[in-house]
Amino acid sequence: MPQRQKPNEIFTPELVKILKIFGLISIGLVLLLSFFNSKRANNSGDDLTFRMTSSSRLYFFNVRALNYDRESRLDAGMVLFRHGKREISDSQPTLDLVIILNSQKDEAYLYLEPVNTDWPLQIRSFKAGKEKVFQFQNSNNSDFLMYVRDLEPWIADDAEFELKKDSNWISIWSKPKEKKALKTTLEDFFRLINEGE
């Protein structure tokens, strides 16, 4: 009959020491990594791309919204914000960047609003010998966010923009106050959806 080992013989002092060290390192590593876990897993199935937090919404309403013209759309349950320093014209074609707050869903959206022109939009941008033409269709919130992300590097570089109406190219966002309003609107929107500083 084989002889059984006693528990004292299985857990030698060296093995106990190794198990203690491994256990303490494992617990320490878990605790350390938990401090750097700023993003939580989203298992709800909800799209959180446009989600606002209460603090970002309050900051926008109490501090940033003062720079915007506000339009309440009771039919849709949304509030539209257009920067107060944008170019306003009764006849000249332009493009407004609008922040839309949907308080029922706690979401914020961006919209490129054609003024004195219509969809589809053709925008030409040029800076330092580089040129790019953008083609935009009237679409959904995700597409508008993608359009703005395409334009964002050009806006940050203070590029020149033109909007095509019929067969003519018309300058838009050309004045320093318009460029600043455009950048501010982007900053405020990305802060609302927690992508800003």
Rank of each mutant, 00 (worst) to 15 (best):
P7A: 03
L32A: 13
G23Q: 08
P114M: 01
R73Q: 11
R82Y: 03
G77F: 01
R149H: 11
L192F: 09
R86F: 14
R149K: 15
R82C: 03
S38K: 14
Q3E: 10
A41D: 11
K17L: 09
I172V: 11
L97V: 09
A156D: 12
P176Q: 04
F161W: 06
F35L: 06
L186E: 00
R51F: 10
K17I: 02
N37C: 04
L112W: 05
L110E: 02
I27A: 09
Q92W: 11
F190W: 13
I123W: 04
L163M: 09
F134I: 01
M78F: 06
P2L: 14
S91D: 11
Y59N: 15
N140Y: 07
E107I: 01
V98Y: 02
E160F: 12
Q137Y: 08
S54Y: 15
D166P: 00
G23P: 06
L80D: 07
F35I: 04
Y147N: 05
L32D: 01
E195D: 07
G84T: 01
I172F: 05
L19F: 12
D150M: 14
N62W: 13
P2H: 14
L32V: 03
F134K: 07
K39E: 07
D157N: 12
E195M: 14
M78Y: 09
L121V: 04
S72K: 13
S142D: 08
K177T: 13
P176S: 05
D157Y: 04
D158S: 14
L151E: 08
S89M: 02
M1C: 10
E195I: 04
K17N: 05
S54L: 10
F144C: 02
L112D: 00
F60S: 05
P120A: 01
R70S: 10
L66A: 13
D166Y: 12
R4V: 10
S54R: 15
R73K: 15
M52N: 08
D143R: 15
V79Y: 05
F190N: 03
N43V: 11
G23K: 03
Q104R: 14
L29Y: 08
G28T: 02
I123R: 04
N116H: 09
Y147I: 01
S44P: 02
E14N: 09
W154E: 05
E162M: 11
P13Y: 02
D96E: 09
A181V: 02
V79R: 06
K85Q: 13
D96N: 13
L32I: 08
D150K: 15
F36T: 07
R86G: 07
L95W: 06
K177D: 12
N141E: 14
I123P: 00
V79F: 05
N102W: 07
L186M: 11
F81S: 03
A65H: 02
A156E: 15
E152R: 15
L192E: 07
S34F: 05
F161N: 04
V148I: 14
D118L: 05
E197T: 12
K175F: 06
A159G: 01
G23M: 10
Y109P: 01
K39H: 10
R149F: 09
P2G: 10
K165S: 08
N42V: 03
E113D: 14
W173G: 01
D166T: 08
L19A: 07
S142M: 11
